[in-house]
Design a protein around this nucleic acid. Structure first.
Lengths: 153, 153
DNA sequence: CTATAGTCTATCATGTCTATAGATAAGCAG
DNA sequence: CTGCTTATCTATAGACATGATAGACTATAG
């Protein structure tokens, strides 16, 4: 299960990518628009900034905005900002290395071998999908469903 | 990250599948052999029994043993016994259904669509690999490494 | 100088995870 | 029937992560 942080981050970022008219977004407005607890969102946006996904400016006229184009922001980079690297087992973690405490022989550990495949499969999906892709996919689905409705009438 | 429960379960089951000579295994022996806290292992074996992976008998001569052949016990069934269905988001959970609390429109939710792909990718791996496969893979790796050693001498 | 808006620190409740202790129940041997 | 063996159940404790809130602090436009 991905955390609420990740989901709120996706919602806020998607909102910004969808409505590119404004040049900056206030925490309060994002919180209201996407129904996210304001104080919680604060910390989330700060994390996204530290990952180079958002930029911000203080003071009047300030706020947050996307640091990169939506088609260059991957879902993986968003999720990993909150969930860490998505290692299914400790010994496959890159940013916080170390062997699994219970493992007797990492070299021949079948669990590690299989889990490496799992990790790769996950990465291949989430590191390929971008924010732009997600908005497009959502819009496509919306239209597909409204057409289905037309037929059923 | 999969839990220690899952890892201990895999270790205990692999041990039983590897040494098929004995007709039953004592909790205490499994705990010693695989270096697992005995009391903790108790609960784990009980869960595996409730999932139909193990069978048991009390009293002298009793113990635990595999309820099925190792090539019919999937890694997925073991992991799911402890981690639940591996739904990346609430709305994709089958055994504890319900929509994600923050979701406004599940039908067009891009996160759900992508995560469904992730869930499928994970399942395709772990539901295909069996206990027998893992033992074989581990043994293969052991031999491969010892051959590599031969060359390097 | 002051209102605005992001940033930082601390705290809280709740829940899960790993692990341990102690009591209980089933089953075999004599 | 007694006693030993072995699984099973209930309860608890400590550590940590998660979701969320409160309040003080800092930068900046005008």
């Amino acid at each position: 299960m991905i955390s609420m942080r990740s989901k709120y981050a996706i919602k806020a970022l998607t909102y910004m990518a969808r409505t590119r008219d404004k040049e900056s977004y206030l925490i309060a407005d994002l919180a209201t628009a996407e129904n996210i607890p304001k104080k919680f969102l604060e910390a989330i946006l700060l994390t996204l900034k530290s990952q180079g996904i958002l930029t911000s400016r203080k003071g009047p006229g300030g706020g947050y905005w996307l640091a990169k184009a939506p088609n260059t922001i991957t879902l993986g980079s968003i999720i990993r900002a909150f969930e860490g690297d998505l290692a299914p087992v400790q010994c496959l973690s890159e940013n916080s290395p170390g062997s699994c405490p219970e493992c007797q022989d990492a070299a021949t550990c079948a669990t590690r071998l299989v889990m490496a495949d799992v990790q790769k499969a996950i990465s291949e999906i989430i590191d390929t999908v971008t924010l732009a892709d997600m908005i497009e996919r959502s819009e496509f689905e919306r239209q597909r469903l409204s057409k289905q409705l037309d037929f059923s009438i």
